[in-house]
Design a protein around this nucleic acid. Structure first.
Length: 583
DNA sequence: ATAGGTAGCGCG
DNA sequence: AAAGCGCGCTACCTAT
């Protein structure tokens, strides 16, 4: 039987349903290339007719709708029709492209249309001049929009006809594509739900720090006699290395570096209070800017609705923007004593509790899995500390350990990652704070003990050299530009595959068991944040073991996975561990 | 005014 | 030859 397909593309008054943006027109195209445009504005008769047709399209569940970035169009359409459309069959050509060509410079609709079918972007260029803020596509002349919409619908259909057969050729790709589509729907709900900013706390923090920051700037100017240089890397570089004649410890592309690490090392040598002021000012200014940007992006209730890109990064990870909630500053990071914890400005919704479920050491586990190192596999299986052997080897002269064991272990842990990712002895010496000679010597010992782990960089590098890509544990193909990055791609990509599947499973399970009172809010690479209504707390604790089992069930791994659980009723930074580990 | 590059920094 | 990698965002600076 012939597949029933229709490509579908919406034009909206903006990007955000939560800001009231709506569909004002849509276009469709059938598999033989006949496209039509349907405006929902203008003459009343036309609008009525086109709404009815929209209803028709989205009443037929077995008619597969093809979109490029389905998360956007489905969200807008659900908003327009006022009902759930998640049981509709759909395709997403963006996902298809990302799965098939992760490293492609741009998998957007227009570029691919041009590349694969020579469709020019002239239609887009024609509407562009009408888009300057605050105007949008709805303000473009209809005849120009018409052409643009026709072509966009045709582009999407074309891409599907080109890419989908290539997905079907590979059994793993079929599973990955299915999973990615499920993830799109789960993610759409996360974005819609959003995460709550504590507006009053944000404002208060930003204002207070601003005052301190202004004062600090004046102090710096008084101390150095230089004005307007504290925020400028270029001018700081001149001041420190030319005027003060301090030694340059690190170069950038065009000059001497004044980054945090370099300045802290310089401080060890010259002990100039100005350096501390620079670092303080930078951290504080960063905190202020980020807090203000969060405030600007929050809706009337203080909810932030980020854009979570489920597919697109070269390693098949997810990414988050507007704002990026995957890099919100936290307190207690050793490397930056002056950090402003913006996480303190995020809170659970009133009446809710937030749980943070994070995989403990997932990258290391995957590395060990791929290395096949029996010794390390057994440590993990027996719930031991996989970083102890490295600590023992690299700090053999500081045995037995004193009170600073955690510091040494932390450095050894960094080395454990750096080595399989291709770091050499010089880098190790820096990480571990030992001499180059010691680094060479102990690296040799490490290599003897963990030959296969150290060999990954070569074996996987060869894999890249021969075929241009690596495979993840799910058989996902990741093209890699630089062979030495192959190990990282394999590990990041496999970890990404795990947490993506975990989200799909958990989201489905939560929807089935709790309706909408317990929901996933956000993934952060090795962690998912779940909010739970206080009314359902008892139930949640009951189903927690089931959630964890869904998260760790990956038989393709030779090592077990573990999940740490933290909880907060106040703010993101004050989350507390609620139990040992679950597995 | 706007665009693009670089540096720097946050998270994983 | 030697190399950890992936993202997004702000600020500064230069060029158009």
């Amino acid at each position: 039987m012939r597949k029933r397909l229709l490509s579908y593309d919406t034009e909206t008054t903006g990007l955000y349903t939560w800001r009231g943006h709506k569909i004002f027109s849509y276009s469709v195209c059938n598999p033989v290339g006949k496209s039509t445009v349907h405006r929902l504005d203008g003459p009343w008769e036309r609008e009525r007719h086109n709404i009815k047709y929209l209803e028709n399209i989205w009443s037929d569940k077995s008619l597969a709708k093809i979109m490029h970035n389905a998360k956007f169009d489905i969200n807008m359409t659900e908003n327009c029709l006022g009902r759930d459309l998640s049981d509709h069959k759909f395709h997403d050509t963006w996902l298809q492209a990302c799965i098939l060509q992760n490293h492609h410079p741009s998998n957007d609709l227009k570029s691919l249309g041009y590349e694969l079918a020579g469709i020019s972007v002239e239609d887009e260029d024609a509407v562009k001049p009408f888009l300057s803020y605050p105007r949008g596509y709805q303000d473009c002349p209809e005849y120009l929009m018409d052409r643009y919409q026709h072509i966009d619908a045709e582009r999407a259909m074309l891409l599907h006809l080109f890419f989908h057969p290539k997905i079907l050729e590979n059994k793993n790709f079929v599973e990955i594509y299915k999973m990615e589509r499920d993830l799109v729907l789960a993610t759409m709900r996360m974005e819609r739900r959003g995460i709550m900013l504590n507006k009053s706390v944000s404002v208060k923090m930003a204002l207070e720090i601003q005052i301190d920051c202004n004062k600090l700037k004046l102090d710096f100017e008084a101390a150095t006699g230089q004005r307007g240089i504290i925020t400028s890397p270029k001018k700081l570089s001149w001041y420190l290395y030319k005027k003060m004649n301090y030694p340059s410890l690190k170069k950038t592309k065009e000059g001497d570096s004044v980054d945090k690490n370099t300045l802290m090392q310089l401080q060890e040598i010259v002990n100039d209070p100005c350096i501390e002021m620079i670092l303080k000012h930078r951290s504080w200014q960063h905190g202020i800017s980020m807090l203000n940007s969060y405030l600007e992006l929050a809706d009337g209730q203080g909810i932030i609705h980020p854009n979570i890109k489920t597919c697109g990064p070269d390693t098949a990870r997810e990414a988050c923007s507007k704002p990026n909630l995957q890099n919100v500053t936290k307190a207690g990071v050793l490397l930056n004593p002056y950090a402003i914890s913006a996480r303190k400005a995020f809170r659970p919704r009133p009446g809710y509790v937030n749980f943070h479920l994070d995989y403990s050491g997932i990258e290391m586990r995957i590395l060990v899995h791929y290395s096949g190192e029996k010794y390390l596999i057994n440590i993990i299986r027996n719930k031991g500390d996989v970083h102890v052997p490295a600590t023992e080897i690299f700090y053999c002269d500081r045995m037995p350990w004193g009170s600073d064991f955690q510091t040494l272990r932390g450095a050894a842990k960094n080395a454990n990652f750096a080595i399989p990712y291709g770091s050499g002895a010089p880098k190790l010496a820096k990480i571990l704070n030992i001499t180059l000679e010691q680094a060479h010597q102990r690296y040799t010992i490490y290599k003897c003990k963990f030959l296969r782990l150290c060999g990954l960089i070569d074996t996987i590098g060869r894999e890249v050299g021969e075929q241009g890509y690596v495979l993840t544990i799910f058989g996902r193909r990741l093209y890699v530009a630089k062979p030495h990055a192959g190990v990282n791609y394999k590990v990041q990509g496999s970890a990404a595959g795990i947490i993506k599947r975990a989200q799909v499973r958990v989201a489905r399970f939560l929807q089935e068991t709790t309706g909408d009172e317990v929901q996933i809010l956000l993934p952060i690479h090795d962690e998912i944040i779940i909010e739970c209504s206080r009314k359902r707390l008892r139930d949640f604790y009951e189903i927690l073991p089931k959630i964890i089992s869904l998260m760790v069930d990956f038989p393709q791994l030779s090592v077990p996975l573990e999940v740490d659980i933290k909880v907060t009723t106040t703010n993101w930074d004050d989350k507390k561990k609620i139990n040992k580990t679950w597995r």
